[in-house]
């Protein structure tokens, strides 16, 4: 059971503290799209000070740096790796530029005697989608994968369709690869901030193909996303009943057993266990 992760503009001082009031699994401070070109330097400095000061907040903190082909990338990495962060978010990642990104991270980490920085990669180019499997097998730094729909649509020269047809294949690929490697995967942000119904439908689509959660680009999106990616009371109760029925069946020496008229086999039991484990896991957060 995952909650949303919230993007916060890197240069917006008021949000650096305010973001921690929301019920999210992670805060992602953004040095990329949310920061104007002439504020890149001051955003970086502000963020470094904020991260060093706001250590009392335990919600994991990530920083989205600028892409490797921008003039800001190296300085972003150099300064942010020194700050108390839980990881870096890397835009426009693909199997080819990832090697250079890791090399630069290693250089900075060695220079400052820092341990390996976890990476949250954004898959938002056709090359990124097609080389995702190679990426996740290149390094054990990657902990999260985010699908970046807007940039990907631009790369594909397509427009957003009503039922997000354009994302069907990339979503399936990101979810499948992430699950195969036991990485957390987050769906692309929904950019129509005032369209709650659209966000709800979009989040449900992502959940249905295997995403763990979805990124929020505005605090107003957090509750909708959290609700979609949480288990319902009914699902939780049913999971508990299935596990109880399984325990009874075990005592009676039965293999497969029926529950409310349906045969329960290992995959059904595993899903029930996953639901209960997720809830128990969250209790300890």
């Amino acid at each position: 059971m995952r909650k949303s992760a919230l993007f916060v503009p890197g240069n917006q001082a008021s949000m650096h503290v305010g973001a921690f009031a929301f019920d999210v699994d992670a805060i992602i401070f953004d040095l990329e799209d949310a920061v104007a070109l002439h504020h890149k330097d001051s955003a970086r400095t502000l963020l470094r000070h904020s991260l060093s000061t706001l250590t009392m907040f335990k919600i994991p903190k990530y920083v989205r740096v600028n892409p490797i082909d921008s003039p800001f990338f190296k300085e972003d990495i150099a300064q942010m790796i020194q700050a108390p962060i839980d990881g870096l978010m890397i835009p426009k990642a693909d199997a080819y530029n990832l090697l250079q990104i890791i090399k630069w991270c290693e250089q900075v980490e060695t220079q400052h005697s820092k341990k390996q920085t976890p990476l949250w990669i954004i898959v938002e180019t056709a090359l990124g989608v097609e080389t995702l499997w190679d990426m996740v097998n290149t390094t054990d730094r990657i902990t999260h994968v985010l699908l970046g729909g807007e940039d990907l649509m631009s790369d594909l020269h397509v427009k957003q369709t009503y039922n997000r047809q354009e994302l069907a294949y990339p979503r399936a690929k990101v979810a499948m690869v992430s699950k195969a490697k036991k990485l957390l995967c987050y769906d692309t942000p929904y950019v129509e901030i005032n369209n709650e119904k659209g966000l709800l439908e979009d989040a449900i689509q992502a959940k249905n193909v295997g995403f763990d959660s979805k990124i929020a680009i505005h605090p107003s999106q957090v509750d909708v996303i959290n609700a979609v990616f949480s288990y319902t009371e009914e699902e939780i109760n049913q999971a508990k009943e299935i596990i109880e029925a399984y325990n009874q069946a075990q005592q009676q020496g039965l293999g497969a057993f029926s529950f409310k008229g349906k045969m329960v086999d290992k995959p059904v039991l595993n899903r029930a266990m996953h639901i209960i484990n997720s809830i128990e896991g969250n209790k300890h957060d």
Partner: peptide
Amino acid sequence: GALDHVLAARIESAILR
């Protein structure tokens, strides 16, 4: 109404610029 660390960061940025 900036917090101390925001003020320090903005002064630092101005100096570096």
